[in-house]
Every structure is written in C-alpha cells, then in structure tokens.
Simulated assay, not measured.
Amino acid sequence: MGQSPRIAIIAIVDDERAVRSGLSNLLQSVGYETDTFDSAEAFLRDSVRLASVVLAIVDVKLKGASGFELFDTLIGLPAPPPVIFISGHGDETVQQQALERGAVAFLRKPIDVDMLLRHIERVLAAGEGTA
C-alpha cells in the first residue's frame, strides 16, 4: 500500500476553551480539520501534529509563552505555517506588530467569521497552488 495522504490541519491556539471550541466547530462545519491547543507550549510539544498544520490561528495573549513568542519559534521551523493572530485586547499597535512580524492577518474578538473564512481560503488557496 502507498503512503496515506498528509492531513492538512488548522491549529487553534487559545487559552480560552470557549474560543477554541467555537472556532473549531465553525471551521469543521465548513469542512476544515482542526486541532486545538490551550498554550504555545502544548502546540510546540506535538511535533507530529505540528508538521501537519497548514495554518495556525493564534491568540496574542496566552498563559505561558505569548502568541508573538510562539510565532517567533514557528518562523524558525523549516516550513512554518502561516499565522492569523486573534486578540480581545488588540489595539492598533498590537495589530501593527503582528502584521510587521509576518502574520497573514490580525482579527479582533469577537471574530468576524466571514472575514476569518476569507483569510483562511486565501491562505490555503495560495498554498495549494504549489502542490
């Protein structure tokens, strides 16, 4: 038998359970596979799942390492996933920092679902063009 295809996963990293489950349910309802993590450390610890992540949705403020610290670690990987930052505390400065670091988007909570889905579709379409 041949190799099984690589599963493409959208990772959701947020220390609020309601946000993780809400985003996961939303994305699964439109056909995406998701995996959720309550901290940057938990996300980085699972190297097998990390290798399958095609996009990460990351809260800026997390318990433990911040979303920005997680991003800095991710960009050091051989094939870092694109990151969409989310925040309930984000002001213009935080948004600017996120985008200057290389995030594909910054969304404030409560999240505009249509905007989130547009960003996801754009990122994944760009990634699929190289396959």
Rank of each mutant, 00 (worst) to 15 (best):
Q28G: 12
F71A: 14
G129R: 10
E100F: 12
L124M: 05
A98I: 08
S66E: 05
Q28M: 14
D14Y: 09
P78C: 13
R17S: 15
I75Y: 04
R49Q: 06
I57M: 03
Q28L: 09
T93D: 14
Q28I: 10
S29Y: 02
H89M: 14
V19R: 00
D72W: 03
S66H: 07
L62R: 03
R20A: 11
S39G: 00
A105N: 09
A79K: 04
D59V: 11
L62D: 01
F85N: 02
L26N: 05
D35C: 04
S21M: 13
A8F: 05
I75R: 15
L107E: 02
D35S: 09
K109G: 08
V123G: 03
G129M: 11
V54Q: 03
D91F: 11
D15R: 03
A56G: 06
I10E: 04
L62N: 03
G22D: 07
S52A: 04
L74V: 06
G22R: 01
R101C: 08
Q97S: 10
Q97M: 08
D14S: 13
V58C: 14
A8C: 08
F68G: 03
T73M: 12
A79Y: 03
Y32C: 02
D35Y: 00
L116A: 01
L124C: 06
D112R: 10
I10P: 00
A79I: 01
P110A: 14
M1Q: 13
R108Y: 00
I57L: 04
M1C: 13
S47W: 01
D14N: 14
L26T: 07
F106I: 10
V13R: 01
S87K: 08
A56F: 00
E92H: 10
L74C: 08
T36K: 00
I86T: 13
Q28A: 15
A56W: 00
E33G: 04
A65C: 07
V60P: 06
Q96G: 09
R118C: 06
T36E: 09
A125Q: 11
R108C: 13
D46Q: 07
D35L: 06
L50G: 06
E69I: 09
E128L: 12
S4L: 14
P5T: 11
S24F: 01
D46I: 05
D35I: 02
E121F: 08
D38N: 08
A11S: 06
I7T: 15
L26D: 05
A42M: 04
L26H: 06
F71L: 09
T34I: 11
H119F: 12
A42Y: 02
A103D: 07
I75T: 14
D46M: 01
E121M: 12
P82R: 10
S21F: 10
Q28E: 15
Q95P: 05
E100A: 15
V19G: 07
E69Y: 07
A18Q: 12
A11K: 06
R101E: 06
F71S: 02
Q95F: 11
N25W: 08
I7N: 01
G129E: 11
E69R: 10
V58S: 09
L27R: 01
S66D: 08
L107S: 04
L26C: 09
H119T: 07
E100N: 15
E16L: 15
